[in-house]
Design a protein around this nucleic acid. Structure first.
Lengths: 205, 205, 205, 205
DNA sequence: CATGAATGAGCCTTCATTCAT
DNA sequence: GATGAATGAAGGCTCATTCAT
C-alpha cells in the first residue's frame, strides 16, 4: 500500500495540531505512516514546506466546510440557533475533516496562530477565510431581511461580525473553562439576540 | 547593575510570547539580559520552571488589570463603549504591564494556549481569571439594573458572557485580519447592543 | 569503512572500564571511532543504554571464557595450579576478548561495581555468572573425587567457593599492590592447598 | 555551631562512597552541612583536593581499625573464625568509623578503586595498608606457631596472604550475590582451613 | 523510489570555580 | 570568614538535513 502525499499531509496536520511544530519530529510523523524520514523528503522540500502545505490543506477544508454551513433559503432562526450552541460547534471541529485529523477547537486555533508566527505570509489566507465567512453571514442576514424574517433597520455587516466574533470568543473561553456550559450560555445569548433582531411582525414566542 | 529575578521573568514573557516556548532559547533570553545561561539557573530550576513562573507572573498582571478595568458606580454606557473599541482594547495589552513585555493581543492568546498544551495544570488559573472577570461584568450589569440604567428583564450572566465572548472573539479576528477596522465594527455592534439593553425610559439618542 | 554496532560496544567498554562512566564522554568515544556523537544515537537510545548494552556484551564474553576455562576430564592438579598463578590469570583479562578492550583486572572489577551502582537490575546477571562459575568448579572437584584424585571427605561447594574467593581477592590485592608477586604467593598457597586436598594415596611430591 | 574541617571530610566521604565522585556535587555536600559551596573552599583548594583528603582520612581510619583487629596473645582459632564470617565482617564496614560514613563493603571498594583511577599517586597509601595488614597477620601466625597452636612447617606469609585474599574475594562475591550465605560458606572454609593448619597435638574437635 | 547511516548545529542542564560584597 | 551571584566549559540529547547505496 503506497503512502500518498495526501496521507502525509493529513498525518502532519494531526501531529502539528496536537504536538505543535517544534515537538513534531519528522521521524515520528514518518513512523506513524510506516515510512522513513527520507520518504517525506520525496514529497516535501523541508519540514517548513510540509508545515505550510499541510496548514494550507487544512485551511481549504475549513473554508469549504464554513461555506457549506451557510445555507441560504432556509429559515434563519433555526440556522442561527445552531451557531450559538457553542459546545456543539466546537465538537464539529474534530469531525470537520472526516479524517480524524484534529483534536479540538483549541488545537486548531493554536495551530493557526503558530503558523502566523513562523510564516506571516500565511496571514492573508486566514484573513480571506474569515472575510469570506463573514461575507456569507452578511448575505444570510440580507436575505432574511429581504424575506422579512428580521428587522430591516439593522446593519448586516455589524450583525455578521457580532455573530462571528461571539462564536469565536465563546468557544475560546469555553475551551479554557472546563466547567462552563457553552450550550446553556449560548442559548441564553441567542434568545436575547433573536429577540432583538426579529421582525416586529414575527410571532413572539 | 544587578539583574533581578523580575527582570528575567519580564524578558522571558517577552520571548515566550513572541517566539514561542521551543523557539525561545535560554541563550537568547540570557543574552538579551547581558548575563549567561547559567545565571538563569540561579533563579529558576529549569526552563519549564521559568516558563511556568513567567506565565503566572503575567496572569497575575492580567487579572489585576482586568479587575481594575471594571469600575462600579459610573455610568455603564461609557464604560461599555470602551470595551467595544476592539483596536483600543487590543492596544492596551501591549502597555498592560507598563513594561514593554507583550507584543499584541494574539501574542498573549498564543502564549496562554501554549502553556495549556505543556502544563495542563495551569488551566485552572486561566479559568479562574475568566470566571472572575465575567463575575465582575455580571455585577456591573446588576448594578446598572438596580440603578435603572438598563432593562431589568435581561439575564446579567448572559450579558456578561455575551460581552466577554464578543470582545475576545473580535480581537482574535481582528488580530488575524489586518485590514479590518475593529473600532468601526465594534462601534456598530455596540450601538445595536446598547439599543437592546437600555432602559425604555432612557432618552433615545 | 562502516562503523558497526559491535565496534561501538567494544570501544565503549574500553572507555567505560578505563575512564569510568561519567568521565567517558560520548564525544570522546565517538571521536575514537571517527564518527560523531549523533552517530552513536543511531544505535543506542541513550548513554545509559549504551552503557548497559556494552556491559552485557562484556559479561557474555566473560561468562563464555569462564565456562571454557573449566575443562572436565583432565588432571585437576594442573588445572588448579593455573588458577593460582594470579598474575597470569589477571593477564588473561586484557586478552580475554581478543579485542584489546580491557585494561587490567581492576578495570573490570571497577566497571562491574559501577554498573551495579547505576543499574542495580544488572546484579542478577553478574550473580548468575558467579553462580555458574562456582557450580562448574564444584563439578570439577566432584569429578576429581570420583576419580580418586582428591580426598572424598571434603565438601566440593566449600572448595569451589574457597578457590574462587581466593583468586578474586588475590587479584584484587595484587592489582592494588604493585610490588607484590602474585605468582609467587599464589604458588605458595597452591602448595598448601593441594597438600590438604590431595588423596592420601597420592604420591607425595 | 561551627562546621569543622573534619565534619566536611566525613560528609564528603559519605557522598563520595555512596554517590561516586562525579555525581557528588559540592552544592549537595555543602547543603547537607548547612553551609554554602563557598564555605568548602575555605578549607579545601578544589574538589580534587577535598576528594583526596577525605579518602586519606578514610584510609587512616581503615588502617587503624585493621591494626586493632589483630590482637596478639589470644587464641588464634577464635580470632580467625571471626575473619571467616564474611557477612559479619562486611557488616563491620558500615560501623567502622563510628560515624555513619560508609554504606557497605562494595561502596568502599568502589571508592578506593575510583580514587586510584583519578589519582594514581594514592596507590602507595592503599598498598601500604594492605602490606601492614598482611604483615600483622603474618605475625599472628608466627606467634601462634611459637606458642605451638598451629603447625610449625607452614609458611606464615603464605597463610597471611591466603587468608586476606580469601576474605576480600569472599566479601566481593558476597556483595554481588544477594542469595549467597557468606557466613555459612565462610564457616565451611574455615573448618577446612583450621583442620589443615592446627598443630597435630591439638585436640581434634 | 526509498532506506538508513551520518552529520552538525543547537538546546537544556550541571557544576567547579571565581569574586565582589 | 562566608555568601551568593555569575561564569564558562562540557556533556547528553534531538533532529532537520544530506547522501551513498
Amino acid at each position: 500500500m503506497k503512502v500518498t502525499k495526501e496521507q502525509i499531509l493529513q498525518k502532519a496536520i494531526s501531529f502539528f495540531s496536537s504536538h505543535d511544530y517544534d515537538r513534531s519530529s519528522l521521524n515520528e510523523i514518518a513512523g506513524a505512516l510506516n515510512i522513513t524520514k527520507g520518504g517525506i523528503y520525496h514529497y516535501f522540500e523541508s519540514k517548513d514546506d510540509l508545515f505550510k502545505e499541510s496548514v494550507s490543506y487544512l485551511l481549504d477544508i475549513v473554508d469549504q466546510q464554513a461555506s457549506d454551513s451557510i445555507e441560504l433559503g432556509i429559515p434563519l432562526k433555526k440556522l442561527l440557533k445552531s451557531f450559538f450552541l457553542l459546545d456543539d460547534v466546537a465538537g464539529l471541529y474534530s469531525q470537520m475533516t472526516g479524517l480524524d485529523i484534529l483534536g479540538d477547537y483549541s488545537d486548531i486555533v493554536y495551530l493557526l496562530f503558530s503558523v502566523l508566527k513562523k510564516f506571516p505570509e500565511m496571514r492573508s489566507k486566514q484573513e480571506r477565510i474569515y472575510a469570506r465567512y463573514m461575507m456569507g453571514m452578511e448575505m444570510l442576514f440580507r436575505d432574511a431581511q429581504k424575506r422579512g424574517e428580521i428587522r430591516r433597520d439593522l446593519d448586516p455587516e455589524g450583525l455578521a461580525f457580532e455573530l462571528t466574533a461571539f462564536v469565536e470568543g465563546g468557544m475560546l473561553i469555553s475551551s479554557v473553562s472546563s466547567g462552563l456550559d457553552g450550550n446553556r450560555l449560548g442559548t441564553k445569548v441567542f434568545d436575547n439576540f433573536w429577540k432583538r433582531i426579529q421582525s416586529d411582525s414575527d410571532d413572539p414566542e
